[in-house]
Write a protein that binds this DNA or RNA. Structure first.
Lengths: 155, 155
DNA sequence: TATTGTTATACTCTATAACTATA
DNA sequence: TATAGTTATAGAGTATAACAATA
């Protein structure tokens, strides 16, 4: 590692690093576009789709939803309200702690979540450009880049 | 409805593709976190930071800003209003067409944009895990994945 | 006393539609 | 007529602070 790394690399990254960051910026932009589009096809906002996807995997207390969304708990109330009013999600009591409300996807909610995931064309379009060998390479690079927690995050 | 139809790859992508998509999902989440954090350190919202970064590169008519942000032109009015009220951006007349207003970063705006970019630690942290050779590999894979327009988009 | 979820409030972003001033 | 930018409006996400119920 270079002696001046920590403070310097951010202000004057080498051209290669900078290009990779820019490419990731493009990936991020496209991913978001696709996600919002897929969500809107189900009359959902991006935030609603994210919460629904999360709850379709596993019923989760409100507070924990907020933590996973990295937002304030008060926001989750409204998002779950809207999902609940459409029958996609329900609030359940937690027998162990009566303060807790566990948000859970309904049957209809799980169906919608599955369709939403299927509608994400991101998997098909850009990755189709790569051969399986290249995809494996890409996967390994991303894994190393993100560290072990990235693998664990996979639903 | 029993979902047995395999008309699209999207419903049952192979595990490799699915994992890569999930990894990109993690990249997207991290990128966004970092971006919002860097923006908030300058008392900017994400949208304001994006517009400022855009205008720091090149003065741009309002309508074109909207196109690049992929949002309605009416939204840009408010975002530029807020940036302008803080002296980071200014509106200029276009001599060629008096309907057009060209938004441009001020000197202070360009400074802030540069700091903002420098504050994006995304370049440093995850990519530091990779060797230069691996970064080159990653760059080439991303380029192929995104197509030629991704290269052109690079500022 | 501390924690969970909610409410109340204020701000920003967003799309839609109507308006103005130019072209 | 068509276009660029704005205004007006309404809905959604967001953080902050204060609150009730429960621990």
């Amino acid at each position: 590692m270079a002696a001046e790394s920590r403070t310097t690399h951010a202000l004057t990254p080498d051209p290669l690093t900078r290009e990779v960051v820019d490419l990731f910026g493009t990936v991020v932009a496209r991913f978001h576009e696709e996600y919002e589009l897929a969500a809107s096809e189900h009359q959902l906002t991006g935030a609603q789709a994210r919460v629904l996807a999360l709850l379709a995997r596993e019923p989760t207390p409100m507070r924990q939803v907020a933590r996973q969304l990295k937002c304030e708990p008060s926001n989750v109330t409204g998002i779950v309200d809207r999902l609940e009013s459409r029958g996609l999600v329900e609030r359940r009591a937690d027998p162990a702690d009566r303060r807790v409300k566990v948000a859970a996807a309904t049957e209809q909610g799980r169906t919608t979540a599955a369709q939403l995931r299927g509608g994400l064309d991101f998997a098909g379009a850009p990755l189709a450009e790569l051969t399986p060998a290249e995809r494996t390479l890409l996967r390994d690079l991303l894994r190393r880049m993100l560290g072990d927690d990235a693998v664990t995050e996979t639903p």
